[in-house]
Simulated assay, not measured.
Amino acid sequence: MKKILRMLCLLGLPMAVHGAPQHANDFPTIDRVLYVQECIGAHPDAGKFEMTSKCSCAVDAMAREVRYSEYVDLSTAAKATTIGGERGGYIRDSEKLQADIKRYKALQAKVNKGCFIGPPTAR
């Protein structure tokens, strides 16, 4: 009986030390692919294989930093800054959206730095 109890304690020890297993992040594959494609497109002078690896690293790092629903909100706000006219004015005038845009850009800079991605190449 003592042997069984000792075995159960040993088996439970890694869970106690490391906590419960982490759930896989929730970024859908299609959004990962789109992120990598956009990232590669922003660096046309770099090699595609190199950028595929670096951009994959970046989206994985992004997924570790924020939940998918938060990523959607932040990236949508950042992409919407290109909307012109009255519709774009709402985005430019919204303090919350401006804060989201700033946070997204900071997060993107962090993951790019960690994955050795330089600034986008001008076209």
Score class of each variant (00 low, 15 high):
Met51His: 03
Glu65Asp: 15
Ile83Met: 13
Ile30Ser: 12
Thr52Asn: 06
Thr121Leu: 05
Gln108Cys: 09
Asn25Ile: 00
Val72Phe: 00
Phe27Asn: 05
Arg67Met: 11
Leu11Met: 13
Asp100Asn: 09
Pro28Thr: 07
Cys39Asn: 02
Thr52Ala: 15
Lys96Gly: 03
Lys110Cys: 05
Val59Phe: 06
Glu65Cys: 02
Cys115Gln: 10
Val17Arg: 03
Pro120Met: 04
Ala122Ser: 12
Lys2Glu: 13
Lys48Leu: 12
His23Asp: 12
Ala77Phe: 03
Pro120Lys: 01
Leu5Asp: 00
Tyr68Thr: 00
Leu74Ala: 01
Leu10Thr: 10
Asp100Gly: 06
Arg92Phe: 02
Ala46Ser: 11
Asp73Val: 05
Ala78Glu: 00
Ala16Trp: 15
Ala78Trp: 05
Ile4Gln: 08
Met62Phe: 10
Glu95Ala: 10
Pro28Arg: 10
Ala24Lys: 13
Glu65Ile: 11
Thr76Gln: 04
Val17Asp: 05
Val59Trp: 05
Lys79Gln: 13
Glu95Cys: 01
Thr82Cys: 03
Ile117Pro: 02
Gly89Ile: 00
Asp31Tyr: 10
Phe27Cys: 06
Thr121Asp: 13
Gly89Trp: 05
Ser56Trp: 07
Glu86Thr: 08
Met15Asn: 14
Leu74Ser: 06
Gly19Asp: 08
Met51Gln: 07
Ala99Tyr: 09
Gly89Lys: 10
Ser94His: 01
Asp31Leu: 02
Ser56Tyr: 00
Arg6Asn: 07
Met7Trp: 14
Lys3Ser: 10
Gln108Glu: 12
Asn25Met: 05
Ala20Leu: 15
Ile30Tyr: 12
Val17Met: 11
Cys9Phe: 15
Gly19Met: 04
Glu38Tyr: 10
Cys55His: 03
Ser53Asn: 14
Phe49Asn: 08
Glu50Tyr: 06
Gly19Ala: 12
Cys115Ile: 11
Thr29Met: 10
Tyr35Lys: 02
Ile83Val: 13
Ala77Arg: 03
Asp93Gly: 08
Leu8His: 06
Leu107Tyr: 05
Val33Arg: 13
Ala78Ile: 04
Ile30Val: 11
